[in-house]
Design a protein around this nucleic acid. Structure first.
Lengths: 108, 108
DNA sequence: ACTTTTTTGGACATTATTTGTCCATTTTAA
DNA sequence: TTAAAATGGACAAATAATGTCCAAAAAAGT
């Protein structure tokens, strides 16, 4: 049996899942991460954004892959942006092309 | 013959193309747009971001589609973000799924 | 070569946005 | 019903972005 990855879950929701599965209160986890419990709660609810350092700390604390968490957070940001700019999903394809273009044309 | 759309061109580059094709100096266009020539230059070079109002003004001034310019700018932002976070292009798919998910789950 | 116009780019004050904390209130569970 | 946990608003502090001014560099014109 393998884990089914639901990649429409936000970083915050994922974080909350990790925490609640271990039955830890905000207080406990926040303390280990060196932040205020209220801030942790806000991050879980996507009312605040995690810093890179926090993502790293979360990955260490819960023994999950850091890069995966980073990607998760980044895709959140992109999704939210598209929604509140009411943009067409087409722009993702355009963005992809731009990434290719920019990467192949770096330094010249 | 139809126009070939190169959608890896940034908003700024597009703007510069529009301006130079009409052989207008920064001074001239900036004045019509109500901004400093230096700011316009920076926007053309993607050193500053256009406001929504400016995108609208640009669309009017050059008689081009506003929504298209908006999308162009937005895809720039996403592309730049991916590049400087050194993120995997996979996240675009994840973002797309999140958009679907969030849109279908709005209000509940 | 000289002058004028255009463009670039740094410095900087201003404005806007985001962050993290505190604390009161609400919710949950014991 | 009381103790612990979670929420959420307010707010100061930190950070980031904006737009202007101006001097220097580059390009165009004579």
């Amino acid at each position: 049996m393998q884990t089914v990855k639901q990649n429409f879950i936000s970083f915050g929701e994922h974080l909350r899942t990790l925490r609640t599965k271990m039955e830890l209160p905000l207080r406990e986890v926040a303390s280990h991460l060196g932040i205020d419990p209220s801030l942790l709660a806000k991050i879980e609810r996507s009312e605040r954004q995690p810093t890179k350092q926090l993502i790293k700390d979360v990955a260490n604390y819960f023994h999950v892959n850091e890069k995966e968490l980073q990607n998760e957070f980044l895709s959140d940001q992109i999704a939210y942006k598209i929604i509140d700019e009411e943009a067409d999903l087409e722009i993702l394809k355009a963005a992809e092309q731009k990434v290719y273009y920019l990467k192949t044309h770096r330094n010249g």
